[in-house]
Amino acid sequence: MTFADGIWQQIFSFDHYGELLALVRNSLIAGAALGLIGGLAGIFVIMRDLPFAVHGISELSFAGASAALLLGTNIVAGSIVGSLLAAGVIALLGTRARDRNSAIGILMPFGLGLGVLFLALYKGRAANKFGLLTGQIVAVDTPQTAWLLGTSAVVLTALVVMWRPLTFAGADPDVAAARGVPVRGLSFAFMIVLGLAVALSVQVVGALLVLTLVVTPAAAAARVTSSPVLLPLLSVVFAVASIEGGILLALGSSIPISPYVTTISFGIYVTCRFVGAHHARRWGSRTAAPQPA
């Protein structure tokens, strides 16, 4: 076997695939739920220009999960606690974009440093440490699945309740405030919901690549449509396709799941960008065409 064949076998291996597929039922269920909330939350992340906040929250989520791993408690719960703390701090200190970005810039290295400290103190399996950074949903067990699905239901319910006022406030916050929409309170509530969504997404691709689930699908969908119905629908479809595809491709390999999820998500974005540019050129040429006399 050549070196290239060995690398290929590590990345894509479908030996005993049918037997392995039965072991990831929980992962596929949890992945569908996380794709749903990631795709929906991402719409407002793009609308409110919060991708940097997502990354900042993920660092504290990593710290919380690392602390839970060190203490031998539920990792998902630890991740959620860390995310909620970060989201609350960002929401309270970030009334303006400059303040928000400064707060995030302070939180990110602090959270990452804490996470590294906790992992250095942890004496268990190295795979558990690595999984917090790169994702480990293929190994999701029944208790973790229950946590993921329960928290996903909370996030989904909150997004449904806040959807219309969030859309209004995101489009024109001044007019929304004049119409009686509690813009500041709504912004705080969304940051908490975003914290939960990020904590769950960390379980899939790890803390370092969480943007690929909460930002990339929505950004891809926005390239091909501005419809208030199609935009969230496509965002969810893209997120679910990235997660489920990543799980299925990673199943037979020795590579962590995150490269597969991020590659699929990035491929979808590039495709949507080309499609959007093509449609823009076509409609532009039609508009510029001379009208018959």
Results as ranks from 00 to 15, higher is better:
86 A>Q: 08
87 A>L: 03
87 A>C: 07
88 G>R: 04
89 V>A: 13
94 G>K: 07
95 T>G: 13
95 T>Y: 09
95 T>F: 14
95 T>E: 12
97 A>N: 11
97 A>I: 14
97 A>E: 15
98 R>G: 02
99 D>V: 04
99 D>P: 04
100 R>L: 11
101 N>D: 15
101 N>E: 09
102 S>K: 15
103 A>Q: 13
103 A>T: 12
106 I>N: 13
109 P>I: 01
110 F>W: 09
110 F>A: 12
111 G>D: 04
111 G>C: 03
111 G>L: 04
112 L>H: 06
112 L>K: 06
113 G>Y: 00
114 L>K: 02
114 L>M: 15
115 G>W: 07
115 G>N: 07
116 V>R: 05
117 L>K: 08
117 L>R: 07
118 F>K: 11
119 L>Y: 01
119 L>W: 02
120 A>V: 01
120 A>D: 15
120 A>L: 09
122 Y>G: 10
123 K>N: 14
124 G>L: 01
125 R>H: 10
129 K>Q: 11
129 K>F: 01
131 G>A: 14
132 L>F: 03
132 L>M: 12
132 L>G: 12
132 L>A: 09
133 L>V: 02
134 T>F: 12
134 T>W: 03
135 G>H: 05
135 G>C: 02
136 Q>G: 13
137 I>V: 10
137 I>K: 07
137 I>A: 11
138 V>N: 14
140 V>P: 03
141 D>E: 04
142 T>E: 13
142 T>R: 13
144 Q>I: 02
144 Q>F: 04
146 A>N: 04
147 W>F: 15
147 W>Q: 10
147 W>Y: 15
148 L>T: 04
148 L>M: 13
149 L>S: 12
151 T>L: 11
151 T>D: 03
152 S>M: 01
153 A>I: 06
154 V>I: 13
154 V>H: 09
155 V>K: 05
156 L>Q: 06
158 A>W: 07
159 L>W: 07
160 V>R: 10
162 M>H: 07
163 W>P: 12
165 P>R: 00
165 P>G: 06
165 P>S: 02
166 L>T: 08
166 L>W: 05
166 L>K: 12
167 T>R: 15
168 F>K: 11
168 F>R: 12
168 F>M: 13
169 A>P: 13
169 A>I: 03
170 G>Y: 06
170 G>D: 06
172 D>L: 08
173 P>W: 05
173 P>G: 01
174 D>F: 03
175 V>N: 01
175 V>H: 08
177 A>Q: 07
177 A>H: 00
178 A>L: 05
179 R>Y: 00
181 V>S: 04
181 V>F: 02
182 P>W: 00
184 R>T: 11
186 L>M: 01
187 S>W: 02
187 S>E: 06
188 F>C: 03
188 F>D: 00
189 A>K: 00
189 A>H: 01
190 F>G: 00
190 F>D: 06
190 F>L: 06
190 F>H: 00
190 F>V: 04
190 F>S: 00
191 M>C: 02
192 I>E: 02
192 I>S: 03
194 L>G: 08
195 G>W: 01
196 L>D: 08
196 L>Q: 10
196 L>S: 09
197 A>W: 06
198 V>M: 11
199 A>G: 14
200 L>E: 09
200 L>T: 09
